[in-house]
Structures are given as C-alpha cells and as structure tokens.
Design a binder for these strands. Sequence first.
DNA 1: CGGCGGTCATTTACACTGTAAGCGCCCGAT
DNA 2: ATCGGGCGCTTACAGTGTAAATGACCGCCG
Lengths: 222, 222
Amino acid sequence: MPDPSQTQTSQTQTRLPLSRDRILVAALAYADTHGLQALSMRKVAGDLGVEAMSLYNHISNKADIIAGITDLVAGEITLPTPDFDWKGEMRARSQSAHRVLVKHPWAAAQFQAGHPPGPMMMTYLDATLGCLMAVGFTPAQADHARNTIDNHIYGYTLQKLTRPTRAREIARAAKKELKSIPAASYPHLHRRTEELANATSAEVDDFDFGLTLILDGLDALR
Amino acid sequence: MPDPSQTQTSQTQTRLPLSRDRILVAALAYADTHGLQALSMRKVAGDLGVEAMSLYNHISNKADIIAGITDLVAGEITLPTPDFDWKGEMRARSQSAHRVLVKHPWAAAQFQAGHPPGPMMMTYLDATLGCLMAVGFTPAQADHARNTIDNHIYGYTLQKLTRPTRAREIARAAKKELKSIPAASYPHLHRRTEELANATSAEVDDFDFGLTLILDGLDALR
DNA sequence: CGGCGGTCATTTACACTGTAAGCGCCCGAT
DNA sequence: ATCGGGCGCTTACAGTGTAAATGACCGCCG
C-alpha cells in the first residue's frame, strides 16, 4: 500500500461517497450487461470499488436494489398524455415501453412479478389511466384496458428477447430447430417452422398485430 | 445406527430406487408448496430420503429439473381439438391453462422465460396451431394468434397470483394501498383504487374481458 | 482546542447454494 | 469367482445474502 496520507487525500478527493443513487446506477448497469441472475452484492460493490457490506448502509437488502432499478427502468418510459387520438397515445406508449424493456432485458419479468410498484411505475400507471379515462372509459374499463395492453407488451417483449430478430437469423434458427420437431409428432408446429426456415423477409410485426387487435376491440367497448 | 444387515434388507425392500420421474415428481411438489426460488437440490433430495449429489445420477443439473417440472405442468393443460367452434376451443384451452398455472404458481413465469419447450409443451403448441389452422387461419396467422392469446393467459395469471381474489379481500387490500397513493400525485390511480375499496361484488372477470377482445379481433382477420 | 457522537466502510462470520471429484457398495453378467 | 458398471455417498470448493462487531473519519459543542 502506498503512503497512507497520500492515499487518504486522493481517496477523499477522487472517491465520491457512496449513496443509494450511485448504488442503483451501478446495479442497473450490471444487470443490463450481465443479467439480473448474475447480479450480486459483491459484484455491484466491486464495480463501485467498495466492499459488499458497505452497500447495506444505503439500501436495506438485495430486494430493495432490484425494486429500485426496476423503478428506474419504469421511469424511462415516455408517458401518454390525454388526447383525442388515444389509440395513437397507447401505441406510442407501448412502443416506448417495448424499446425500454429491450434495452433492459431483465426488466420485463420484474414488471410482471407483481411486486408493489415504485413511484415511477405509479406515475406511469396513473398517466395511462388518465389518458384512457379522458376519452370516456370508466375507471374500471381503463384499468382492464391497461392490463390487457400491458400483458401484451410484456409477453411480446419477453418472447422477442429470446428469439433472433433479423429475418436471416430467424430462418437459420428455424432450420436448426426443425430437427427436433419431428413432423410425425408435431405436424402443424413442423409446418410453421418450415415456413419460417424458408422465409426471406420479416413478416408483419407481431407486436402491432396483437396491439391493433386489442385497441380496436377496446374502441368498440367505449 | 441399527443392525446393518437389517437396515440393508429393509432398505432394499422399502426404498424403491431413485429415478428421473421420482425426482421430478418430488421437485414439482416442492415447488408447488414452497415456491420455485426455495427449491434446492438438497431439499428435493431430502424429501426423497437421499443425499443431494445422488440426484445427479439421473438428472444433469438443476436447470434440467426445472425444465422437467415445467413440461410436466404443460402436460396438465387440456388440449384443444379441431372444431368449427374454434372460439369455444380457445376459450376452454385458455381457462384450462389458467387453472393449471394457478395450481402451480411458479410455472407461468417459466412458460414465459423462453427456454426451449419440452415434449408436452410442444404437443400443446401443436394442438393449438392445428385447431386454428383447421378453421382457415394461415400458419403465420395461427402462430401470431396463439402468441397473442398465450401472452394474455400468462400475463393475466401472473397478475392474479399476487392479488387477492375475493371481493372482500380486494376491498381491504385497496383500502390499505390507498394510503400510499396520494391523490395529489396519482389522481386517476387513486380514484380507481378508491372505487375498488368500496366495491362490494366482484366485477366482470378481467380474463374473459381481454380474451373476448382478442378472439373477436382474430375472427375478423380470418 | 479537545473530545464526543454519529456516519459509514470494513472485517469476520454463518448458513446456504450448485456441483465437481472420487469412494465404495451391491448386483448382474461372464 | 470375479469383474465392471450403476448409483448412492462423502468431501470439497467457490459463491450467495446478510448479521454483528470494529474502527476510521468528520463535524459539532463545550
């Protein structure tokens, strides 16, 4: 170890103090690059140049960290605003949420895990309800509508996260899977996979497919 | 330890040999009662009266166990059959899936995790595709339709698993939550929660709400 | 200026996780 | 009779979350 006095001064100068926010930012970055299951107290602490137990002076436990970074992610979604074109608002909001959840691949599962929502998530919920209620939906209808839309967003995002996205790769993956899908046992699944293996261009976007379905259905109920 | 010879004979008589199936059954039971996050090799082994490492003679690792029990759950869902009343088939299949996933509360998240499907899951997928294609949907349409429906099932089930189900309890929970939802910051969310706190009877079932939406939308596309 | 209390990083420790490596028993085949 | 392999066990290790106690620093108050 070098001269202690120098180390001290350089520390007090360079190393800014730990804080809940700094911990959450580091944890968020770690989860994004290594996955949530790889996130551990010691790893986050390491990235901050600190020992694991030091984190407990600012956060209460690991669940607290996960709740914190999940709410940070919720804060990245652009909020819908009351507007006559509520479908457009919902579509924009859905695509924003989808983009954000792809950027933080571990987050969609957390959104669905059912833990109590943080403040960011609550403003996101509130804005969505407000947008729907402004165009005539009852609170209950708005609630159900939001649930249905969100389920679609989360489900679609989760499934897209594990499959290749470019047409080229989809075809290659499908060819590989085809060997483990005997046509005798799974005729329809086999046929569909064959189709995917030979597809050259990306098909109609599934996301808008289901979303339009839901929005149009909601429109009729209003 | 008692007389070894007696112990041996009683063991060879009473204790049936370990097997992949016995392990999966024990693991499934454990996950159902204690949750998937509490499932560990030692716990499962303990329930079988055996040491943890013995399991590895029949399964390759913990992920293998989880994949196995997940596929067991998939096998419990009643399959749809090709029928003119495809909406009825889809509705029945959805409700069966929902019931099964409530019985195994950890499973819905696994279904959505995107791991390669086991044989039971694949016959489930194949039957669904078959039912849809039999009434005129193209393979791609059937695929998208199934995805949209399943997202709804999983999402709805996951959310129902964390909230109280009886109207009485919903109201009580809503009253408690109300304190952490200041009307100033979250007016619409607050209003909706208020409504829930005063609701006496269960509302229209959200599940059928969204499902009908989707099925009707699909019908128009066919 | 002296010391005192509070803040906060650290050290040590414990119970628990998945699983690699190797031991030894028993059983069935040669 | 012996050998080989299947299979349960023991031991071991690296890693997990976190409780408890230690100690360095800082600003405040006398």
